[in-house]
Simulated assay, not measured.
Amino acid sequence: MYTRGAGKTRVVVGVYVDDLIITGANPKEVGAFKEEMRRLFRMSDLGLLSYYLGIEEKQGRNAITLGQATYAKKLLEKAGLASCKSISTPMEVRLRLSTKSTTPTVDATMYRSLVGSLRYLVHTRPDIAFAVGYASRFMETLRQEHLVAVKHLLRYIAGMIDYGLVYPKLSNGVNNLVGYTDSDMGGDVDERRCTAGVLFFLGDMPRVPAIVFVSGGGRRQGEALIVDHFVEFVRRDGELTEGPQLIAVLLVGKAAEKLASHHYEF
């Protein structure tokens, strides 16, 4: 990501291979940058951003919506669940999986591929963050019960295929950043480690997908199983390190405000 200018004249450019996402508070500055790029390189202006790296974007007058419905449908086809019967919860209540399971082994390559794809889907689906993080713990010791939990999650996605993130325009100027966290206090049946979730709100809307941690007791350490789009959180000795946490709050707040206030162009 690159920036030019400051304040209301700032232009932000996201680069992936030969694709650019250009945004800024001032349309004139954005237009001038695009004209400059056309003079220097052969490029096409595709207008407002609508699809990028599997993420669909719908831009309206009052809100921006992000989703991955097409990506989710392809994932269901890969798993052989394109016409499955949907369910209403991403995971069974009080589900406790173990690395010491004695159920039959499963195809490790398929399991890891499905979980990896689900981790990318979390970008616009915070409702599945915990379930995906939980399934990610068993990448080394794969058993039938672990695959059953992943298929349960996929059946939930099949029924909620159009879910995504909505960033409404902040018309009243309320942009207080508030965070919440909770822990299950030793819910891991194998090592008695804790799982904690974190959720941030900017104004009245959630702005950051739930982030799942595994905290170690004593000297043991755990890392984030699900990371948000901007920064990786690390939990050590039961507490979040102060530096990454403060940086994350600033980055997430600024990014969310930009999404709520401006259109992205491709």
Rank of each mutant, 00 (worst) to 15 (best):
V198L: 00
A135E: 04
R235Q: 15
L66V: 00
H262T: 14
M37G: 00
M37K: 06
G116K: 12
F233W: 09
G243Q: 07
K78M: 07
P206K: 00
I211G: 04
N176R: 04
L114N: 15
T3Y: 06
T124D: 05
A210C: 05
N26I: 10
A260N: 13
L177W: 02
P209H: 04
L46V: 00
T109R: 13
V13P: 08
G203E: 05
V249S: 11
K258Y: 07
M43S: 06
L177T: 04
V148I: 02
N175S: 15
I211P: 03
L46E: 05
L95N: 00
R94I: 15
L53I: 10
K78T: 04
G217K: 13
G187N: 07
D204F: 14
S117C: 13
A158Q: 01
F201Y: 02
V214Q: 09
T9W: 13
F233P: 15
L53T: 00
G5K: 09
A196H: 08
V30K: 05
G116T: 12
A256D: 03
L66E: 02
A32D: 10
G5D: 09
L259D: 02
T23F: 03
I211R: 01
H262Q: 15
E57F: 05
V11I: 14
V231I: 03
G5P: 12
L75Q: 06
F233M: 12
T65D: 09
L240H: 07
